[in-house]
Amino acid sequence: MFENRPRRTASSQRAQTLFDLRTIIAALFGIYGTVLTVMGAAGQMPAELRKAGGWNVNLWCGLGMLAFATAFGAWALLRPVSVPPAEADPDTRDTALARTG
């Protein structure tokens, strides 16, 4: 995603995967999922279970988020961003400007 880096060495490729939006989203939900799963597994208070009609909301949401994070992480790893060939045509704004004038 943050791909406008001209050099494509192994390390910059790794940096790109790290800064890929998909990786960031996976990291956020990885943290959230872990915290919730631990909280849920540690047990919910009866009052909180009653709130949700007997469901352990933290546990299930946590597991759901971990699954989501895994899917996004896998997507980022399996289909890394490729640096597109130089496509930004420098005359874009000039023509746009010229025509408005």
């Binding site: 919730l36 208070m45 909180e48 909301v57 933290n58």
Partner: peptide, 11 residues
């Protein structure tokens, strides 16, 4: 307020 436990509430 009525449905979510602490933890999920924060999110």
């Amino acid at each position: 307020r009525d449905l979510l436990p602490n933890g999920m509430l924060g999110i």
